[in-house]
């Protein structure tokens, strides 16, 4: 956005001397320039070019050094998996997506509710915050087997792991966000005799949104990681189990394809969260508050 606003002004002085008489011509130049800069290629072109370059490099290294397929497949091998074993990939894609989404929703919802409670009760914050910190310090890989033992082999342990991994960043950010209200704003609400509920609904929730979305963007990708890690342990479906199976059987192209699919899921989740953020945060959170 910032680029769109500043660049046309810069281009104007360049255009002026060449065509001093026709003001309209200068303007349309600036407009064209602006459209060019807004275009998809201008925004995404560099990243696409680098990605293509990296894939080419990967391919080149595998071919030049004659690396066997079971150690590192070429992009073509991986692509072939998508074509020939697409059904296997998709069958395992959906459970993982379901677990990731469920974990994302549950973990963030619990975090937001706890954060709201903490902001209204010092006692609750002092009692439970340390426990939340403690749980967060246990590596998720270490919790996974415990949860599988406790919750069995179905969706439940994977969803819980995905939820746990989302939970902490959102809790921390949400508590900060709900408290990021200026003292004067709170005094204004007091002069208006507003109660806690009204302060929460009219002031705190909206002002916490920038903080919440910072956390949701992290959670959108980590929930996918959580679901996949959950499927590593004694599961016979999902991208996580496919990764384990492909690794043990030296089916490297399948392994790579699965990893790419998992990454794609995380990117998609991140993109959706960013999209929601853009739609909801049209106001500038910074200086006015």
């Amino acid at each position: 956005m910032a680029i769109d606003q500043t660049r046309p002004n810069q281009s104007r002085p360049d255009a002026m001397p060449t065509d001093p008489a026709a003001g309209a011509g200068v303007k349309s130049d600036a407009q064209r320039e602006r459209e060019r800069r807004k275009s998809f290629l201008y925004q995404r072109g560099p990243a696409i070019a680098v990605s293509v370059g990296l894939v080419a490099l990967w391919w080149g290294v595998v071919v030049v050094f004659g690396i066997p397929t079971y150690i590192a497949p070429t992009p073509a091998d991986v692509f072939a998996v998508f074509v020939e074993q697409g059904d296997v990939l998709w069958i395992n894609f959906w459970p993982t997506l379901l677990e990731a989404i469920s974990g994302f929703i549950i973990g963030n919802l619990v975090a937001v509710i706890l954060a709201i409670w903490f902001v209204h009760s010092q006692l609750a914050e002092r009692s439970f915050y340390p426990i939340a910190v403690f749980i967060n310090t246990i590596p998720i890989i270490a919790i996974a087997p415990i949860l599988v033992l406790l919750l069995g082999n179905g969706y439940a342990p994977k969803i819980v792991i995905a939820a746990l991994i989302c939970f902490f960043p959102t809790l921390v950010n949400m508590v900060r966000g709900l408290k990021a209200v200026s003292p004067q704003m709170l005094e204004l609400m007091r002069v208006l005799s507003a109660n806690d509920r009204e302060v929460l609904l009219k002031v705190r929730l909206q002002s916490s949104l920038p903080f919440l979305f910072a956390a949701l963007k992290i959670a959108s990708t980590t929930s996918v990681i959580g679901a996949i890690v959950g499927e590593w342990i004694g599961s016979n479906y999902g991208l996580g189990s496919l990764i384990i199976e492909a690794t043990y059987n030296f089916r490297s192209p399948l392994l790579y394809a699965t990893v790419i699919l998992g990454a794609g899921m995380a990117v998609m989740a991140f993109g959706l969260t960013t999209f929601a953020e853009r739609r909801l945060l049209t106001w500038k959170p910074s200086d006015v508050f």
Binding site: S182, L188, L192, K202, P285, V288
Partner: peptide, 26 residues
Amino acid sequence: AFVFQDSTLLPWRSAIENVRLPLEVG
């Protein structure tokens, strides 16, 4: 009513919605 040194407007509310705030609370 109280007016502070900062305008203490809610940044996500338009001018008119900010003026309406006192009618919605307390």
